[in-house]
């Protein structure tokens, strides 16, 4: 196991809700509420969950696009939780972000060359053969024609735009890339191209990824380890194989069971878990285990005691009083441990 590149401890982001004459804070949307994980060098960590689970907020916290209200973010051994913008500057080169929408995240008035070259200029980096050559090299790396240097984003298709977005993040040779729904706005056939590109770049440039996505199939394909979030909490964290083959948290089970399977023969025989209702509002999340309102295994204890994230098998952590697929000893120990 290699050293962690990024370590997040008890990360919190509460957005205040104000009310009344004096606009006092009466509540908080606990978008991210005590999330801890590590990202190891060279791996891909997948962050999955449904809307409102806090996965996007987590990504923005890591890149310090928004300020955390609690917890700690450590990158390469440096605490960057509240580092000032000025001090962050060199770090910004190391941590880059890929956005979901390749249409709105590229400035339509700038040429591809200007967009991809901007990081060089902003960071004041000298390149051996000029910025243009460096940009063209990157364009080639992401599968675009270097002659596209002077074209504008609107001349490209969605997939190509996402490549431009990726090229921009690669300009400064980052160590960590946070990709927030990098393929969900793309057509199916293009999704696969971009997924493959991300994998190739990782191998070539020794990148570390945090991929935030709602599509469990894409996450399985791309990730080495997967973290499942529900209402601002991490409910399960495991390596890919154990998470998909023996998920322990009921929520993970339900998520996997809900994914439509492209196999018409299997639709009858498949055993399904159907969750009732929608995800509760993060403004007023259920107490203790936040999943208990929708969980078919919930007991009294789930409503009163919050289950901690525990390691029940090697490389497999779960926050549940009644985990499934757990090794026998661990399963018995879990409810008693609280």
């Amino acid at each position: 196991m290699s050293e962690p590149l990024l370590s997040v401890q008890g990360l919190e982001k509460h957005f205040p809700v104000t009310k009344g004459l004096l606009q006092r804070q009466v509540a908080a949307v606990k978008a991210v509420d005590g999330v801890s994980f590590e990202v190891r060098k060279g791996e891909t960590l997948g962050l999955v969950g449904e809307s409102g689970c806090g996965k996007t907020t987590t990504g923005r916290l890591i890149t310090r696009l928004i300020e955390p209200t609690g917890g700690k973010i450590v990158f390469e051994g440096n605490d960057i939780t509240h580092m000032s913008q000025g001090k962050m500057r060199p770090l910004r080169r190391d941590v880059q972000m890929i956005f979901q929408d390749p249409y709105s995240s590229l400035n339509p008035r700038h040429t591809v060359g200007a967009i991809v070259g901007a990081p060089f200029r902003i960071q004041g980096i000298k390149t051996e053969q000029g910025v243009k050559k460096a940009v063209q090299d990157i364009l080639e790396l992401v599968g675009l024609n270097p002659e596209h240097y002077n074209r504008y984003p609107h001349e490209f298709s969605g997939g190509q735009r996402q490549r431009i977005g990726i090229a921009r993040t690669l300009a400064l040779k980052p160590k960590l890339i946070i990709a927030d729904e990098p393929v969900s706005a793309l057509d199916v056939s293009i999704q696969a191209q971009v997924v493959n590109l991300l994998e190739d770049l990782q191998n070539e440039l020794d990148l570390t990824y945090v991929v935030i996505a709602h599509d469990l199939s894409v996450v399985r394909h791309i990730s080495d380890r997967v973290a499942v979030m529900y209402l601002g909490k991490l409910v399960e964290l495991a390596d890919r194989k154990s998470l998909y083959e023996s998920p322990m948290h009921p929520y993970t089970n339900a998520l996997l069971s809900a994914v439509p399977i492209p196999d018409p023969k299997r639709r009858v025989e498949r055993e399904r878990i159907r969750l009732q209702g929608d995800v509760p509002s993060p403004l007023n999340p259920p107490p203790a285990c936040r999943f208990h309102t929708r969980c078919w295994k919930a007991q009294e204890i789930c409503k009163t005691v919050e289950p901690p994230l525990q390691k029940l098998a090697p490389g497999h952590e779960v926050a549940c009083h009644f985990p499934e697929n757990a090794p026998a000893a661990a399963a018995e120990a879990a409810p008693a441990a609280v």
Binding site: S189, A192, N196, R220, I261, P262
Partner: peptide, 25 residues
């Protein structure tokens, strides 16, 4: 075939590579 190859599937063993269609619609 291209659509089927582009799609990662949960009901099968994970393949090493997706098989996308080249180009764009």
């Amino acid at each position: 075939w291209g659509l089927l190859g582009s799609m990662p599937r949960l009901d099968r063993e994970r393949t090493e590579r997706l098989l996308p269609i080249k180009g764009s619609p």
